[in-house]
Amino acid sequence: MPIGNVHPSVRPAQAGRTDGAAGSAPHRGVGRPRRARGLRSERLAPYILVAPAILIIVVMRLYPLLLGVNFSFTGDGDRNGMAVGLDNYLELFRAPLFRTALGNVGLLVLLLPVAVAIPGLLATFIYLRVPGHRVYRGVYFFPAVLSPVIVGGIFNLLLAFDGPLNAALGSVGIGAVDWLGDPDIAMFMVVGVHVWATFGMSLVVFLAGFATLDSALLDAARVDGASLPKVIWHVIIPGLSRTIQFVFVTTMIGMLTSMFGLLYVMTSGGPEGSTYLPEYYIWIQQGQMNRPALASAASTVLFVIMIVVGLLQIKLLKRAAREA
């Protein structure tokens, strides 16, 4: 169900393989289902199908979120349980570290297309049966089974000042770089490792998406002698717009909420606080600083950011798909 597409005018709703056409050219109800039998239960059926999912999500995610928002207006420590209005939010936006964390969110959003394009391209090549595609499909997933703590630990060793990467650079005459100790570089390294560790998951989603791609279109393009970039641009991207949209959103969520393990192991938010993300900030305030209410306020801000960025993305992508 694309957001904003509020009017599925036929039943069943229009399928839209190329979702650019969503909402237009309805297939006029091919043979309406029989009305007689169990009209009422038929009418209730969609609600019954949706009920378990909705109930669980509302009770166990949205309701606690509301409680957390409520909590963010109370104080910590001596002011525990007292209403403090917007104090926590004011403190947050005055805190340089939280501002750094928000700035890094901006950086992540900018890097997002790269993080989506990499698994997308690789999946395309695998789908086009590049030599060795079976092997790649298997091993590209390997990093995804390792927990971030392990991945971070290994890259710590590889990127250490006296580690193998600097040794290799040194052997070709390039000076050593403090990959994780230089505040201008460290964030990129962490993001790079995160992409490396998670692209296997997006790859699986892309490959599942290719299952829905009409191979006849691709064959036609090949017979016409279209170049690879053209095939990607004119056949694969429009055909997979829904998958791409999905990977965009999940990658963003992954970047904003599951880089904690890597941050913790690779940089601990440093050097000089340059690799803070809101998630890490929340963790530190909650655990190390014992400021749960302030952490709740930061959580609320993170939630709002994610909703806004996510919706904007979907909007942009839909527009792009329509224009393509």
Binding site: N156, A160, F161, A176, D178, L180, G181, A186, T267, G270
Partner: peptide
């Protein structure tokens, strides 16, 4: 100090 102190973990490294 050893080089790269800002990226060297206290424990272990």
């Amino acid at each position: 100090n050893n080089e790269g102190a800002n990226s060297t973990a206290m424990f272990n490294d």
